[in-house]
C-alpha cells in the first residue's frame, strides 16, 4: 500500500482535508500577527521520493530555499515540511514584521524564527486536520529550520525515509498576507501503514 495507490477522487479529498488545516493555520497566523492572512491549497500530487527535488525544483534542484521540517514521532514515523523559495521567504518576513517588501537581504535570526513559526503552524494544522479525519494521533518534533540548495536539504531528509517509503504527497499552498501572495509547498512523508489507514477512510467518501 502506497500513496501511489490514491486515485484522483481520493487525492482531491485529501487535498480538501489539508485545505481545512490550511484555513485553520491562516486564522491562527492572522490572530498572531494581527494581519489579514488567508491560505489556499490549489494543487496536490503524489510523487516518487527520488523525483521530489525535480518536481519541486522549477528553477533547478540547486535553487536556494528555506525549509521548516517537523518529524512525526510517537506511534508512527514520517515527516511534514513546508518549503519556501528563499526570495519568497524574505518577502514574507518583511510583510509580517511590518517592513517594506524587499528590505531584508537575508534571513537573520529573527527572520528565521518567523519562517519557523509559520511552517510550524501550517504543518501542525494540516497534520491536525488529517489526524482528526483518520483518528490517528500524530506527535511531532520541534521545527528545524534549514536554508540551502533545494536538492541538498531534501535529499538529506528523503534519504532517511528512502529505504522504507517510496512515495510522498506534495501539496502546493498559497499563503496570502495582506496583499502579498507567497507560493510554498507542504510535503508529507507517511509510512505505508498510515497511507493504508488514510486510504481506508477515504474509501468511505
Amino acid at each position: 500500500m502506497d500513496v501511489e495507490d490514491l486515485n484522483e477522487v481520493q487525492l482531491d479529498a485529501l487535498k480538501e482535508i489539508v485545505n481545512i488545516g490550511a484555513g485553520n493555520a491562516a486564522t491562527a497566523l492572522s490572530q498572531l500577527t494581527k494581519k489579514k492572512v488567508s491560505m489556499s491549497v490549489p494543487h496536490a500530487r503524489v510523487c516518487k521520493i527520488q523525483d521530489v527535488p525535480r518536481v519541486l525544483g522549477v528553477g533547478g534542484e540547486d535553487e536556494p530555499i528555506s525549509i521548516v521540517y517537523n518529524q512525526i514521532i510517537g506511534d508512527t514515523s514520517g515527516a511534514i515540511m513546508m518549503i519556501f523559495d528563499a526570495k519568497e521567504s524574505l518577502k514574507l518576513v518583511d510583510v509580517l514584521l511590518g517592513k517594506k517588501i524587499g528590505e531584508s537581504m537575508f534571513l537573520d535570526e529573527m527572520g528565521q524564527s518567523v519562517i519557523k513559526e509559520i511552517g510550524n503552524i501550517c504543518s501542525g494544522a494540516s497534520l491536525a486536520s488529517i489526524s482528526e479525519f483518520t483518528g490517528m494521533k500524530y506527535l511531532y518534533s520541534i521545527p528545524l529550520f534549514a536554508s540551502d540548495m533545494l536538492g541538498a536539504i531534501l535529499n538529506a531528509i528523503l534519504s532517511k525515509f528512502a529505504a522504507s517509503v517510496s512515495s510522498t504527497l506534495v501539496v502546493m499552498a498559497e499563503l496570502k498576507v495582506e496583499e502579498l501572495v507567497v507560493k510554498s509547498t507542504i510535503l508529507f512523508i507517511f509510512t505505508s501503514e498510515d497511507v493504508k489507514l488514510i486510504l481506508e477512510k477515504l474509501q468511505v467518501i
Binding site: 527520488q50 527535488p53 525535480r54 525544483g57 533547478g60 534542484e61 540547486d62 540551502d148 540548495m149 533545494l150 536538492g151 541538498a152 536539504i153 531534501l154 535529499n155 538529506a156 528523503l158 534519504s159 528512502a162
Partner: peptide, 21 residues
C-alpha cells in the same frame, strides 16, 4: 538523485545539489 550514468570525453558528468547524498 538515485541515478547513475557512464560517459566519455568530451562529455561532462554532472549532478546537482548534493547534500547528505
Amino acid at each position: 538523485m538515485a541515478g547513475l550514468a557512464v560517459a566519455e570525453a568530451p562529455q561532462i558528468l554532472s549532478t546537482l545539489a548534493l547534500g547528505s547524498c
